[in-house]
C-alpha cells in the first residue's frame, strides 16, 4: 500500500501541469496494473479517493486545478503537488538543542492518534539529519488523552464540522443535547476542555462531562482565528483567577504541603490559604481527599460540596 502512495506522491510532485485522474490510474505504479482500458474502473477510483485522503492527512498538499479551457469539468480536473507547498522552507533549520526539545515534546503524546502524529513529525524532523544533544536529566513526560470525545472532536475541529453530543452539567439530573462548532481543544489544570461556538456564543465544555458519542454533522463553519486556542486558555485562566477559596490546613500535613505548593496559592491574613480553582465540583473532589486535614471556610457552595462528599464517603463505607 505504501508503494502505491509513494508512487502517487512522486508522480504528482514531478508534474507542473497536473495529471488527470485517468492519467494517474492508467500510468502510476500500483494503479496501472489494475487499470482496465475498456472496462469499469470504479473500484480503482474509490481507491484513489482514499489514497488522496491518506496523503493529505500526512500534510502533503495535494491540489486540484482545472484543465485549461475546461473550467468546471470534474472529469478533467488535474491533480498535482506543488513543490513549494510540499517542501519544508529552505530557511527552516533546527539546532541539536532544538531537536532534543522537540523529541521531548513528541514524547508527551503516547495515546491516541496524536501519538502517531507526533511520531511522524519526528521522522520528518530526522530527515534533516540533525544529531540531538542528550538532556542532562532524563525525562518521561506524558499528557493523557483518555476522554473518548477527544478523537472525534479533534477530527471535526480539523474538518470544521459542527458536532452534536449529550452534555451532563453538574447538578443537572439529565444530560442536554448540544450542537456546537468545535474551535479548540485545550488542557487546563490536567483536564481537557472543548472551546466551542454555540449559537454565536463561545463556551467551554469539559470533555469528561460529554456522556454520549460525538456525532459529526455535515454543516461546516469558517476557520477560527489562529490564536483561538490561546484565547480558550486565557478564558479558563480568568475563571480560575476569579474563583477564590479560603481553606484552613492543619500544619505539617499532606494538605498543608501540597495546597501551599499549588499554583497561585497564598497565605491570607488569617493564616488560612487562599486558593484558586476552575470548577467547584472538581476542586471539591480534590479537597475531600484531604479528609480532616483541610477545612473550607469559603465560598459556601464549595464548603457544602466538600462536606457532602465527605459525608457520602463516610456513609458508603460505614
Amino acid at each position: 500500500m505504501e508503494e502505491r502512495l509513494f508512487s502517487l506522491v512522486l508522480a504528482l510532485l514531478a508534474t507542473d501541469s497536473g495529471l488527470t485522474k485517468n492519467e494517474i490510474l492508467s500510468t502510476v505504479q500500483g494503479y496501472s496494473q489494475k487499470y482496465s482500458h475498456s472496462g469499469d474502473n470504479s473500484n480503482l477510483e474509490r481507491q484513489f479517493e482514499r489514497d488522496k485522503d491518506d496523503i493529505r492527512e500526512l500534510g502533503v498538499p495535494l491540489e486540484t486545478i482545472d484543465s485549461p479551457g475546461q473550467a468546471g469539468n470534474n472529469q478533467n480536473l488535474r491533480y498535482r503537488i506543488p513543490r513549494g507547498a510540499y517542501e519544508l522552507p529552505a530557511d527552516i533549520a533546527f539546532s541539536p538543542e532544538e531537536t532534543a526539545l522537540l523529541n521531548l515534546a513528541a514524547m508527551v503524546w503516547r495515546e491516541g492518534s496524536i501519538s502517531g502524529e507526533s511520531r511522524r513529525a519526528i521522522i520528518k524532523l530526522r530527515s534533516l539529519g540533525v544529531e540531538t544533544t542528550e538532556p542532562v536529566l532524563t525525562y518521561a513526560p506524558r499528557v493523557r488523552v483518555r476522554d473518548a470525545a477527544f478523537e472525534p472532536l479533534g477530527i471535526s475541529l480539523e474538518k470544521r464540522q459542527y458536532v452534536r453530543f449529550a452534555y451532563l452539567k453538574p447538578g443537572d439530573a439529565e444530560a442536554s443535547v448540544r450542537t456546537v462548532a468545535p474551535l479548540a481543544l485545550v488542557q487546563h489544570q490536567g483536564r481537557w476542555h472543548l472551546y466551542a461556538d454555540e449559537n454565536g456564543t463561545n463556551k467551554t465544555f469539559l470533555l469528561r462531562r460529554i456522556v454520549s458519542q460525538v456525532a459529526a454533522l455535515a454543516k461546516t463553519f469558517p476557520a477560527p482565528p489562529a490564536d483561538t486556542k490561546d484565547r480558550a486558555l486565557l478564558e479558563l485562566e480568568d475563571v480560575w483567577n476569579r474563583n477564590t477559596a479560603i481553606v484552613e490546613v492543619e500544619p505539617g500535613t499532606d494538605a498543608a504541603t501540597r495546597l501551599r505548593r499549588r499554583r497561585g496559592s497564598s497565605v491570607a491574613a488569617s493564616g488560612a490559604l487562599e486558593l484558586h480553582y476552575s470548577d467547584t465540583n472538581i476542586f471539591a473532589d480534590e479537597l475531600a481527599s484531604f479528609g480532616p486535614e483541610a477545612l473550607v471556610i469559603s465560598p459556601p457552595d464549595l464548603r457544602d460540596a466538600v462536606r457532602t462528599r465527605l459525608e457520602r464517603s463516610a456513609a458508603d463505607h460505614g
Binding site: 500534510g59 519544508l88 507526533s118 513529525a121 520528518k124 479533534g154
Partner: peptide, 13 residues
C-alpha cells in the same frame, strides 16, 4: 527536500 509537517503534526509538537 524534506516534507512539511501536517497541521496536526505541528500542533502536537
Amino acid at each position: 527536500d524534506s516534507p512539511r509537517f501536517s497541521a496536526r503534526e505541528a500542533a502536537a509538537l
